[in-house]
Design a protein around this nucleic acid. Structure first.
Lengths: 191, 191
DNA sequence: GCCGGCCTACCTAACGCTCGTTAGGTTGAA
DNA sequence: TTCAACCTAACGAGCGTTAGGTAGGCCGGC
């Protein structure tokens, strides 16, 4: 199923591009550097993607698809909805563990004005996916009403993204943990 | 006081550079575009600053100095410390009002790996200034103990920065307001 | 069973553009 | 006469992108 053309090489390009974009953004994603880390030449990237914009869109698309899949795994493996919410920040913590990177879509949201339209679309979808998951989990946990769920979900998402950004600025993953604890203490996330 | 060399032109460069960097970051700050918006040629920028790195450092420095001054004004004009905290997000709201821009230092924190060291330093100071002000105001409001003030201050700062970023991604200032309201409802900020 | 054609996955080389930066003027005020 | 504040012109490096080539695997037809 799907097109399986050159899967291994295409996937490796997406892997490396994702990591670079998490540290340097769309503007800082350099096709020659990307190619070198993949182990091919820059021109060869055009065998797999028609342009940098398309490549970045594919990166962002796979990014939210993976995030969505990860959240569904979290849902299926964790019985208690409140427990799922407690584990939610852990998905953002992983980026910091990975060489102090941040969420691809946080970075690209900052760069929004300079993003090609197809990339913008995928970046927005990442937020939608997270907010939707948080909404249904908040409702399942009985923390908010269905009516208020979406706004609260957005608040949690924004706060966690902000915490990740701050922790990156100090290259201090313990700061991230401290911020999340504070959100819990303040009542934004369940204790 | 200070060096007053060519004040008007130098200040105009800093003004315009700040606005550009708030929308496009350090990497997206282009000296030719900057010069054009100021009304001079790119080469003339070098009469005022020795390099792009120095220019950006000056921009970031003035940015946190202005922020610090603004917060002090807020302190002196608002009697009730809790009221000051309520008004704090308003300083971030202004960037969004100004053509959907974000905090210069949030953007640059994302770009941290690619920032020249002098710029990094000024960006960090911006956070310090905000956290220090929030700390003392939280204590004055009797919301947290002196011991916990700094961490809570950081949590508020991160959450507000995150809210600003999300609102930018949707070009929706009402989303920012909704997020802040949710922080208040959750107990992160005073009602 | 082997041969020509075709396709995938890469390559080298270069184009045109933009960037930060520099050398070396010009101009008007003090 | 000096100097701050600008200018024109260009350099070299880097960028995304393209043209055109090559090596190897696969496949149907003779």
């Amino acid at each position: 199923m799907d097109s399986q053309t050159g899967t291994s090489s295409r996937d490796k390009i997406l892997d490396v591009a994702t990591k670079i974009a998490q540290a340097h953004g769309y503007g800082g994603l350099n096709l020659r550097t990307l190619a070198e880390e993949v182990g091919i030449k820059a021109a060869s990237l055009y065998h797999h993607f028609p342009s940098k914009a398309d490549l970045a869109a594919a990166v962002a698309k796979r990014y939210w698809e993976d995030a969505a899949a990860g959240l569904e795994v979290l849902s299926s493996r964790t019985q208690d909805p409140a427990d799922r919410l407690r584990r939610f920040p852990g998905t953002f913590r992983k980026s910091l563990e990975n060489d102090n990177r941040i969420c691809l879509c946080s970075f690209m949201t900052a760069e929004f004005d300079d993003l090609p339209d197809p990339v913008k679309k995928e970046v927005e979808t990442f937020t939608d996916v997270n907010v939707a998951w948080l909404s249904k989990t908040l409702v399942a946990a009985g923390i908010v009403s269905t009516k208020d769920a979406k706004k609260r979900a957005h608040a949690i998402f924004a706060a966690v993204a902000g915490a990740q950004l701050m922790a990156r600025g100090r290259s201090d993953i313990k700061l991230f943990d401290a911020l999340i604890k504070n959100y819990q203490a303040a009542g934004l996330l369940p204790l």
